[in-house]
Nucleic acid binder design. Structure first.
Lengths: 187, 187
DNA sequence: CGCGCGATTGAGTAATTTCAAATCTAGTGG
DNA sequence: CCACTAGATTTGAAATTACTCAATCGCGCG
């Protein structure tokens, strides 16, 4: 019914027997969404985090004036949700929108805590994920502090060249914290 | 010889027997540093993360032009290191400097992994810490994307009022990503 | 062919930076 | 108690950068 891409994803960090994997897998709910749909909307209670099997999504914040600010991308094998809301089991500040048709696997907060309790190595897996996510976000933060727009764009280009092929420039601009016109004038 | 502030810190998240705590505690090395000293310098191999018992420090990046960019603060009960370098056991891009006289406890990467392996609940503790750190950093990132300088300053003021009493404004300005002159002109 | 969306370009405006100078403040020694 | 100094903060003015708004361009698709 489904290939073992999720299994491979876990096995990049921890070893799993088939039984263990099947058990873990049973806590995920498959979700198919079309391009340009909301997986999560600001205000919703955030119960799930999503592992992306296929497709591309963005987490963004809509400010009072209606402007959209891109907080996070997620493509294949990345995880996405409104983390501050997820961890505190509160309501979303962010929205998550699909840029392409997507296949994602939802894992609820409670189930995540449950499988972390049940398997020490799953706890380890998510600790490692959290650590690398933090490191990546800190690099982005540092780039905001010390690079000009061109430098930020080039870092993104270097780190995720594939992403820029798939995301409209206006959304890239928002991720970089500049207007689309300014991004367009870089060269 | 030392009070149990570190124990209390762990016990905000997990329960520990005295023996367990003493064992965990034995992996930390106490380090005293005076104001305006480097705990870590760019280029050093990063082996430790530091829990702050007393004092205040900043992690900052010195760019080619010599400008200083503040990536992180740490005061009592916070943790600080150059995380990207620590997790990859590489060399520091950041420096860590004390703003006040400090007492910190160093935990090496290897020891951290060791006690995480030995105690499931310690793994849990550090996963929770990583999660809340990530959420906080994402809030800061979002503030950079969607707030103007005044908004960013007010958020910092709201979240960490005590911090602003202890940190020179020029360093706060750097943390906010603006020149000290601009911060000074806010009112 | 024409529509619609994304990307680019132009021009004027607003915000921030830089550099320089002035002011304030806490600590020190007379 | 006062003068002095070093460091931090504030203020001023010019230069730079990015923004906004508007118009145009380019391209894929019905």
């Amino acid at each position: 019914m489904d290939d073992d891409q999720l299994k491979k994803h876990f096995e990049e960090i921890i070893a799993l027997t088939n039984d263990e994997y099947e058990y873990i897998r049973s806590h995920f709910k498959r979700r198919i969404i079309k391009r340009k749909r909301y997986l999560l909307q600001a205000g919703d209670k955030v119960t799930n985090t999503f592992w992306v099997k296929k497709g591309l999504l963005v987490a963004c914040y809509h400010d009072e004036s209606g402007k959209e600010h891109v907080v996070q991308f997620a493509m294949e094998n990345w995880w996405i949700t409104d983390y501050p809301a997820y961890f505190s089991q509160g309501n979303a500040t962010l929205s998550i929108e699909s840029i392409e048709d997507c296949e994602v696997y939802a894992l609820s907060f409670d189930d995540r805590e449950k499988i972390c309790k049940e398997f020490h190595k799953v706890e380890y897996f998510f600790r490692k994920k959290a650590n690398s996510g933090y490191a990546a976000l800190q690099r982005r933060m540092l780039s905001f502090l010390s690079d000009d727009i061109k430098g930020r764009y080039e870092l993104l280009l270097k780190q995720y060249p594939a992403l820029l092929q798939r995301v409209p420039k206006s959304i890239v601009a928002s991720y970089l914290g500049v207007s689309r016109e300014t991004l367009s004038r870089l060269h």
